[in-house]
Design a protein around this nucleic acid. Structure first.
Lengths: 339, 339
DNA sequence: TTGTATGCGTTATCAC
DNA sequence: GTGATAACGCATACAA
């Protein structure tokens, strides 16, 4: 198959020098109109598009923004990555999404450093990290003027990064508040406690309960971050004599598992238990699921991120700081009707 | 921040020439043990890892496999991409996942060619395309010896690609067969008809109905490929006097919408309608959803793909051919109990 | 305005 | 076994 044309092929076809042809694609001015047209025509005919990686290599920095996606399975993260990419596209900013490799070595999951280096070696002009990475050290090799924005996760040890995330304390306060208003007192929380993110939410739950004078009803149950984890944890909670009347899950996935356990509980003739999740995944909105959840305002996050990455002034202003957005409660059947 | 060390830094630190240092990382032999150790020690101390893109540029081909992800929102595709990546990792094959950009121009969605070129310019040693791309022309610029594998989609006009997908005819046959065994006759199909993939499934449905002698009950309703599309289409079907007693959706997402419409239908006192989807997304397995679906054997697809990409002999053998895997029926409540 | 030379980080081809 | 040199595709400082 035909080899990809290079700028030399274009120059030759247009009858000009390589550098002249290069100028047509790099800087706007500096080339006479007729020659520029010739080059453009030749490029179009050959189907030439610049190799942006060679460009990165030479210039020290590319013209694209790198988006590092933490987990392909998490709909919240893929959604935010996609929204960010679209927001950047609207500003005319190219981006490149790549997914981190997570491998497992003797039972422990960790991020392959090479999958981070791969993106950094492409020399992005800015970097967006979507989701919490356990180790952000590799990013320290980035040049000073490359902004790093971390979406929906704390900046574990990266002093110059900007964090854009929604306020977990507020989110859990909204959930607890909503449930208390419905008459619940025994409100339990189910979720992991192995990451900054999960710890923040659990702590938000406790603060909210305290705030409502319900400290003696605080019950937390550790769970793995998937449906099965939520199911198992809820089963444990529900067999207690002082079983909760409402359960909040760390995220929607866990809450789905809780819903499963709660359904079985209700079928056994027990009083129905309210369930709420977090992240407002599209699944939560399905008619059959109808799970009350917290919307992290993904669009707002994406907009903020794209603004930070494209506007150097704003980027400089927020370097090393955290931008906190207000989450929003989305009430659905799981906390209203009996399930 | 510290700049990323290059091979020159390593060579200098080890007191050897760049070429010698390079040999340590490229070929196994050809360098004396003591110098090799010196280089390795220096590399470790500086935290050096080779820039694989510069390597690609020079060698004409990198050491990694490119995985092009069609749609970040489709759980089937992200799952297959991830499984493929893991299968490759187990064979010691690095891979790089990047997502295509889909933009919208005057109402029409299309793939940004630049997002494909970006990955091709990295010069992968093999390419995996996950999901159906409307236009595969850009891949024609790949060298002859770079295998292209297309997962879960037809090879629209790429004669040298290998396709790995499951048999849609068989999948729809399994669904229709299952429903007929349960006593259904009025089995309708809901889904789009705007892509090779969707046309294949719709045709599979018709063949299966014919095969069971139910040609006079064939009813298809076009729907957009999302929950809302399924909901709207099902609403239309259900208001008919000869409403179907079972509805098959093009994929799970559409079937979720159908489930919503069917629930409302049942609440209005009508006889419950069976629903089935396709792709066996993790959502289908949620207790509250419990949707009968077709498993495309994602693991098997990923295994096949990774074998094709890593084994040149197998790749050559299947070049230009299609590998069809057998799908599997997963029965859940949506086709059993009244919903 | 146009062409030439140099280098980004790497590997391949030579000499030595 | 080792080291200098060219080249991958591109951009830029410089000279013409």
């Amino acid at each position: 198959m035909a080899k990809r044309p290079t700028i030399r092929d274009v120059a030759e076809a247009a009858g000009v020098s390589k550098s002249l042809a290069a100028m047509v694609f790099s800087s706007e001015a500096g080339v006479s109109a007729d020659r520029r047209d010739k080059v453009l025509a030749a490029a179009k005919k050959l189907g030439y598009t610049p190799n942006q990686w060679a460009r990165s290599l030479r210039s020290g920095s590319g013209s694209f923004v790198g988006i590092l996606l933490n987990d392909l399975h998490n709909p919240l993260l893929t959604e935010i990555a996609d929204l960010t990419r679209n927001a950047l596209l609207e500003k005319g900013q190219q981006s490149f999404v790549s997914a981190v490799v997570i491998s497992e070595k003797n039972g422990k999951r960790f991020v392959e450093p090479s999958s981070i280096h791969s993106l950094l070696d492409l020399k992005p002009k800015g970097l967006v990290v979507v989701g919490g990475l356990p180790d952000l050290k590799p990013f320290k090799t980035l040049p000073e003027d490359v902004p790093v924005i971390i979406a929906t996760a704390p900046a574990a040890g990266l002093p110059n990064a900007t964090v854009v995330r929604s306020d977990d304390d507020k989110g859990l306060w909204l959930l607890v508040d909503h449930l208390v208003d419905l008459g619940h007192k025994r409100i339990a929380y189910v979720g992991p406690d192995d990451s900054p993110n999960s710890i923040a939410r659990m702590s938000g739950y406790k603060k909210a309960m305290l705030d409502r004078g319900l400290e003696k009803y605080i019950v937390t149950q550790v769970a793995e971050r998937n449906e099965a984890g939520g199911y198992a944890a809820a089963k444990l909670l529900l067999q207690d004599k002082n079983a909760p009347t409402a359960i909040i899950g760390f995220n929607d996935n866990i809450a789905f598992g809780v819903q499963g356990a709660v359904s079985e509980h209700a079928k056994a003739g027990m009083t129905p238990v309210a369930v709420a999740g977090y992240d407002n995944t599209y699944v939560a909105d399905l008619a059959r699921v109808s799970l009350t959840s917290i919307e992290q305002e993904k669009e707002a996050i994406a907009m903020k991120v794209s603004e930070l990455i494209t506007n150097p002034r704003v980027a400089a202003e927020y370097r090393g700081r955290e931008i906190t957005l207000l989450p929003r409660l989305v009430v659905r059947n799981s906390t209203l009707k009996p399930s």
